[in-house]
Nucleic acid binder design. Structure first.
Length: 319
RNA sequence: GGCGUCGUAGCCAAGUGGUAAGGCAUGGGUCUGCAAAACCUUGAUUCACCAGUUCAAAUCUGGUCGACGCCU
């Protein structure tokens, strides 16, 4: 009997500006790996500075997948991501290299690692729009009562939250597949992870340390030409996904003469900090993460050593 | 030195006699096809300080301190 070995995958997660990119690249250099990005914004072309996309120079010749390949006018989604990422990982494995998953989009990371089934043909954009306008007219409560007719469990769960978006998706899922999202989620719970992973999470003992890095990086972005990039991006066609990027819309009031540059930059910093906080909240509940405090292991080199030690200790890459 | 205005949470701020709105920031959380999204939740035994009036004061009176403006 042959045991099929699960694919080994090194994962690096953490909030924005915590140094994921550098650590991943160093890991790849050391272990002969390639990076698979798990970032919902770095996928877009021409959005370079705001998304902190690694430059050619920073990549040091390490191959990066799922970066810089989509026009900002195109939509993208988790479902598509899981498919694309699996393909990239397979490709890396077939070359006998180590895949290093790196990214801050928690939903993408978890969906890939837990092999969440996004069920083909479970989305109906037209229906979604219709439901959206119904929500605007009659309110979430009405949609909740619709949902309660066939899926009382999720209606109950969502009623506390009153999150229109999720209510719509729950209805949409049922209408397109015939199964409720509750059943779907239950089915997913028993699934075995597809990959054998070692997960590193970058964080800090002191939250302020991360916030300071965020603030500093925004200033650096401005210095490096964010204003010009923002003008271009704001003038081009954006999809629902790409238009959500942090770094452009916050500068709009300045371009339109409605606020000072300082005010907009402050806003940009605040929203980036909020984002970092949400990422931390998301990853914190994952018990499999090996946390590295970046206010303790301050340089990428220190972090790399720590990570390599752990990989060896756990004999992760043996066999 | 005189006159005036003001002093409420980290910040902005409502409240003019009946027991401290709201917003922002901060902290915590949710998360299965837009996720850099969307959403939930979180704070003042106290209103610069002291004394007084009153059953009752952030609110009225007097004083002290501080800020700003004007005048000399």
């Amino acid at each position: 009997m042959t045991i099929k070995l699960k694919t080994k995958l090194i994962v690096v997660v953490g909030p924005t500006a915590s140094g994921k990119t550098s650590l991943s690249i160093e890991l790849c250099k050391k272990l002969d790996g390639e990076v698979v990005s798990a970032d919902s914004m770095q996928i877009y072309k021409s959005m370079e500075i705001a998304t902190a996309k690694p430059t050619m120079e920073e990549m040091c010749g390490v191959k990066h997948h799922l970066i810089d390949f989509l026009d900002p006018a195109q939509k993208y989604s988790v479902g598509q991501y899981v498919l694309d990422a699996q393909k990239a990982i397979d490709e890396i494995i077939s070359k006998n290299k180590i895949p290093v998953l790196c990214g801050g989009t928690g939903l993408y990371v978890d969906s890939l690692l837990n092999d969440i089934d996004f069920v083909e043909n479970s989305s109906d954009l037209k229906l979604r729009e219709e439901l959206n306008s119904i929500a605007n007219e009659k309110g979430v409560d009405y949609l909740l009562s619709v949902l309660a007719e066939f899926d009382p469990d999720s209606a109950k769960r969502l009623s506390e939250e009153r999150n229109t978006k999720r209510v719509i998706r729950a209805i949409e899922f049922y209408k397109t597949t015939g199964t409720t999202i509750t059943e779907q989620n239950k089915a997913g719970e028993n699934k075995k992870p597809k990959y054998d992973t070692i997960i590193f999470g970058l964080t800090a003992k002191d939250r302020q340390y991360i916030y300071d890095r965020v603030n500093l990086r925004v200033d650096l972005m401005i210095k490096n030409g964010l204003l010009e990039e923002a003008r271009n991006v704001l003038n081009s066609e954006l999809s629902e996904t790409s238009s959500k990027a942090i770094g452009y819309k916050q500068l709009k009031p300045y371009f339109e003469g409605e606020a000072s540059l300082d005010e907009c930059v402050e806003r940009l910093k605040t929203e980036t900090r909020h984002y970092a906080k949400r990422q931390l909240t998301w990853f914190r509940r994952n018990e499999n993460i090996n946390w590295i405090n970046i206010d303790e292991y301050k340089t990428t080199k220190d972090q790399l050593e720590y990570a390599l030690d752990l990989i060896q200790q756990q004999r992760f890459l043996d066999g």
